[in-house]
Structures are given as C-alpha cells and as structure tokens.
Write a protein that binds this DNA or RNA. Sequence first.
DNA 1: ATGGCAAGCTAAGCTTGA
Length: 256
Amino acid sequence: MKILTYNINGIRAGLKKGFDTWLNATQADIICLQETKALKEQVPVELFEAMGYQTYWQSAQKKGYSGVAIFSKITPQNVVYGYEEETGLDDPEGRVIRLDFSDFSVISVYMPSGSSSDERRDFKMEWNAQFYEYIAWLRQHKPNLLISGDYNICHKPIDIHNPKANANSSGFLPEERAWLSSFVELGFVDTFRHLNGEPHHYTWWSYRAGARDKNLGWRIDYHMVSEPLKDRIERALILAEAKHSDHCPVLVELSV
DNA sequence: ATGGCAAGCTAAGCTTGA
C-alpha cells in the first residue's frame, strides 16, 4: 500500500501546475495533504474522484488558510474531523483529520509554524503539547497508527542544510526538537530515516534565493508509524522531483 | 544580520509562511 504526504501550499495553485496529472501517475492508495487553503466546494474534486479517490476535507475557519485533507481509494470505517470528540478541543485552523481502516488509522496533520511572531511560536508549542496528548490517548485505542504530515520541525542536524545558522530559527529550536523527540518516544518510527541515513534529503525549500536549486532545505514532512507497524515498512522515499509547492511529497509503502 | 518568494484574500496591499 502506497501512502503519500504532501504540503501542497494551496491545492488550487497546485492544480495549475499539474498536481492532478502527477498524482494520477503515482498510483498511490492514500494521500495526506496539508495547506490545502480551500474549502471542498472550491476544489474540482471530480478530478480526484475520477482517479478512484474519496476525498475528506478539514478546513480552517479563515478563508484560504491552512487546511488538511485525505484522499483514499479504500473506504474508511470511520472519519474523524479534528479531535474534538476525544479531547474536547476545537480545530479552528483545520490541522487534523483521521481515517480509520480495519487494520490501521492514518492522520494527516499540519502542525503550526512558529516563524511569524513570538505569539505564534508560543502557540505552536501549546498546539503541539495538545496534539501529543491526543496521540498518547489515541495509541491506546488504535495501536496501528500512521501520522503523516508537515511537522514544521527538523528533528536533527542531519535534517537541515545549515544547523548552525538556524540554531535560533523556528523549526529548529532546541525546545521544538526536544518535543519531536518526546513525540517519537511515544513509540513511533520516522520511516524515511529508518531506511535512509544519508544527509542532504529535505522536504521543504525557501522560494527565495534559489534555495531549491541549491538544495538548501529542511526535512520537516514525515510519515511516522507506530511500533506495531514498523515491520510493515517496505519503502520510504522523498519525491523531490515533484514541484507543485515549496514542499515536496514523501512516500511510504507498507506491506498489506 | 538581512533579504529574498509565493498563495490567497480582497481589490493595492496585507497576512502568513519556515
């Protein structure tokens, strides 16, 4: 089973760059999207339905902002928009959606950026702490978990092109990296890093100063699987050739 | 240390992003 995660940075902009054609060629079973920046009604979903996907959308209250989705060729048993039913917390920025299948659950998550202001940096840490609590609870009920998305944190120096210059950059702050370590220690495996120990593999590049051509990037998009799924990881690839966004897609293939 | 690019809202410039 092939599962993609992709921060598309505006799905309507992505479609103008051929995202649908590219997606059709990947033959993926499930796609986790982030930063869709649209309501379902604003998107020509029939393009994706024609490929065999059912599409599920969780959008922000603010128009054109944030938003996640999951496209699936397999009918889920259950769809959870946000996490209010478990945590009582609203998801006004449209950052979480979950599909439950018979043998595993998949979450598409867009964790906040902390780069805009000190307030957003604090918000990010609070949001992540709440998400941690949600997952700590969920793993007891759904032990087979795939948590895919834009975590907005580089975990280790190998995951960023210039760790020294970015020591004070949101996305690579010590407290953010420590949070991601604690999250992994709940019992998750970073599927790409599990299979590939090489440096210089990134999933996001600044639009500025030709960063992508120079591969000056950050690895902030992850497929994290819970320990019980670890032995089902067959492949994990960063698909840097796809250029519909400032991020690129990441693939994980799980044995059925 | 700074600035650089893009999407989308709303109607020329602002907000957000990492």
